[in-house]
Every structure is written in structure tokens, then in C-alpha cells.
Design a binder for these strands. Structure first.
Lengths: 219, 219
DNA sequence: TAAAAAAATGACCAACCAGTCACATTTCAT
DNA sequence: ATGAAATGTGACTGGTTGGTCATTTTTTTA
């Protein structure tokens, strides 16, 4: 949690600082991301950071929760029951995700690059917790579909959840590969991850994935 | 490529050195892996490493190619045409992979942890090349199955290859999650990645994955 | 306006790292 | 046995980092 001093900062300065660190963590491993570099580029003193946050980790966690909260606003209001099947819901999640990216490119970049941090020694326990949570959510999704007879019931729910998790987080990379995007460059320059592309083309990727996932899961 | 000096070393010493570095790179990011630490634990001088290799990268690449070559011996002799369908072949690949792990735990650990290194800044170009190669191989597998009418032909081959790639590299993590293994601990202690488990139980995981993949890909 | 509280500063610290190189030791050929 | 070639060494360089803290500057309070 950031200290009071940081929260009392005028919003512009706060945003400037936040943005710079989002960029740094988006293009580097946690352990390789350098506070010194960011502080220099911001033109503020290193000591200031430690008046705003307890530690590098504190700063990182703050960024993570802020970005998560913003993205949640786009996604949380979607309800499975408003869609005829799970895959319509799944696609809607991605549709909102792309909106989020266009409106909050830096935050999206940061979340998108979280996979990079998973193997950082300093974050091992944290990422394990996060992973278990995500798998938990997916398990409950899938269990529900099994219960109403939409999904197959001959495999462990957890296996299916893991499969879905893996495939889901890979869709971003998949878009890059298939549509020739250069995510890393967009991240560095601060452009939206999917800047040059229309949402429609990107959703086509999601459709292709769904075409496979649907068959894999259906009864 | 290692220097002559290294290749002329007596095999035991060479193995001792190789093993220690395999362990270090298996439990750390490339950039965080420390030659200094390994050299201390080996009781040899830092300078010696630079009589054996040009650089840290040179050493890393040597390890990678050595481990790859050993694993290739287990896998390369398998031919798709010797199996009734792709999935029998796919399963055979994993069966041999598990054998490889039991016989060469450290090398298997190292290859298994390569995913960690993918995001290391110093290795970006290399891993991109490696990734393109793997996708290329999978494309040719899939194209063949499409040609003989076993796989669906309504999706881009590359999409399917990417899907298969993602799922394939996740099977290791999947086994850990589903069978409660602690891979990282096994890696640190130098035990086989799948030490406590019988191959049969592990192949069951592969079967579950195949049950989903088969449906996703079939015509 | 003066005193007190809050915020910003940057030189400094200890701990790392990959890589170097002049020198010591071992091995090998004559 | 002797000299040359090949190996091994570890203090050292120049760099990095996250984090600290006495001091200065700015803001708030009275």
C-alpha cells in the first residue's frame, strides 16, 4: 500500500509517476526493472519513491491492484446468465478486454506482461496465489456448465480449467503471431497493445480459439 | 561454443561443472543466474569459466544444445507413420520424454525451465527464433493431418499450431498441479522432475489433454 | 511573519554482478 | 631435466541495484 504522501500528490504528478513505472515493469522482469532508471527519466529523487512506497514490491503490488481494479470495471458487470452459452460470454469478456486496452493502454500493457513476472524469484509466492485464484474461478465456471449439461463430464473439472487457463492467457501472443503485431514495441512507445488493429479483426482470433475450445469442451 | 580447453577436461570435472550450471539456470532467470555463486560452490576460480567459454551466453547456449541433443536421441527416432493417428504419436513423444527425464534429470530440469528464460532481456532474439522453429514444426505436423483428412480444415494451420504449442508446453505445469508435484523443489535438489511418480500416472495426464485436443482438432 | 510540519533531495551504502588480466601452477615435449 | 605451452587463479574493474538518511526546501499552521 502506498503511503499517504503519495495519495496526497496532485493527480497529474501521480499519474506521471504511475505511468512511468507501468512502462518499466511492462518491458522488464520484476527483478530487472530499475527504479533508478525510472526516477532519472522522471527527474525526481530516488528518495521520493521511498516517501511514496515502502519498497519496490509495495510499488509493484500497488500498480497491479490499480490496473486490476480498472479492468474489473470493464469485465465484472458481465453475467454468464445474460448469454445463451459460455462461449458467447467468453467472447464478451474479450470484447470488453479490447475496449479496456484502447482506453487504458498502459494499464493493459502492464497486465498483459504479468506473465513475465511469474518466474521472478522475488514474486514466486505471490504469483502462485494469483494462479490458484484464477484456476478457482475457471473451475466454478466449468462446473456450472457441466451441471447444466453443456460441457462434457468425463474429465476432471480442474483439468479442463487448466486447459482453459493456458489457452486464455495465450490468446494475446496468438494475436501477435497471427496478425503480425509487435506488442513489445507498442508497450515501449506507450501505444495501445492492439493499436493498429480494429477490434473486429482481433475478435476473429478469439473466434478461432473458441472454435477449438468449444469442441474440446462440449458434451 | 565452448573452447577446446573445456572439451579437453577430464569427463568427471566437465560433468560436475555442467551439472552445477544446469541447476543454477534451472532455478533462476538467465539474468539472475550467477556465475559467481556456481563457481564458489564448485570451488574453482571465476577465471576458469572464461577459459572454458567466451561468455555467460556462450555457456548457456552450450547447455541448451547439449540437453537438446540428448533429448533428441529419445524422441527423434519416433516416426509419425508408425502410429495409427497423430495422438498415438503425440503420446509416444511424451512417453519418451518421461524416460528422458528419469535418465537425465538435470538436463530435463533445464529444458523444462526454459520457459523461464523466454522473457530474459538478454535472450529475446534467441527465444524468438526458437519459438518460430517450434511453431514451424507443429505447422508441418498439422498440415499433414489436414492433408490426409484427419484434422479439420476450416481453421488456419498456424492457429492450430499455436494452440497445440501452448497446450503442449503447459502439460508439465498441468502435471504438477493435478498430481501435486513440486517441480521446483525437485529441480533444486536434483531429483528427477517427476521423481515420486510412476510414468503411468503421468501419461494419464497426457491422455486427458489428448481427450480435449483430439476433439478440438478433429474433422 | 514565524514556527512547525511535511515533502523532496541526492550523496552514500552494502551487496551484487560479468568479465579481465598479470601472475602462479601444472602438463607436456624435447 | 629444462623450457615452453597450456591451465588455473583471484584480486580487481566498472558497472549495476534497492534502500537510507541527514539535510534542504516547500507547505501548512498559528
Amino acid at each position: 500500500m502506498p503511503k499517504e504522501t503519495f495519495l496526497k500528490l496532485n493527480p497529474e504528478k501521480r499519474k506521471k509517476i504511475t505511468d512511468s513505472f507501468l512502462r518499466e515493469f511492462s518491458t522488464n522482469n520484476y527483478d530487472d526493472a530499475s527504479l533508478t532508471t525510472v526516477v532519472k527519466s522522471l527527474g525526481i529523487a530516488k528518495g521520493s519513491i521511498y516517501q511514496y512506497f515502502d519498497s519496490k514490491l509495495d510499488l509493484f503490488l500497488y500498480l497491479q491492484s490499480e490496473c486490476g481494479a480498472i479492468k474489473a470495471k470493464y469485465i465484472m458487470h458481465l453475467k454468464r446468465d445474460d448469454y445463451p452459452d459460455f462461449w458467447a460470454y467468453f467472447k464478451a469478456l474479450y470484447r470488453e478486454g479490447i475496449k479496456f486496452d484502447l482506453n487504458h493502454p498502459l494499464e493493459s500493457n502492464f497486465l498483459h506482461s504479468l506473465a513475465k513476472h511469474i518466474h521472478a524469484p522475488s514474486l514466486k509466492e505471490l504469483t502462485k496465489k494469483w494462479f490458484d485464484q484464477v484456476i478457482g474461478v475457471m473451475c466454478s465456471w466449468i462446473q456450472h456448465e457441466v451441471d447444466i449439461g453443456h460441457f462434457r463430464d468425463d474429465l476432471p473439472v480442474k483439468s479442463m480449467a487448466f486447459f482453459l487457463y493456458t489457452v486464455s492467457i495465450s490468446i494475446g501472443d496468438y494475436m501477435r503471431t497471427m496478425h503480425g503485431l509487435n506488442l513489445d514495441e507498442n508497450i515501449k512507445s506507450g501505444k495501445p497493445v492492439y493499436a493498429a488493429q480494429k477490434g473486429q479483426i482481433l475478435l476473429q482470433s478469439v473466434d478461432e480459439y473458441i472454435a477449438m475450445l468449444r469442441k474440446a469442451f462440449e458434451k
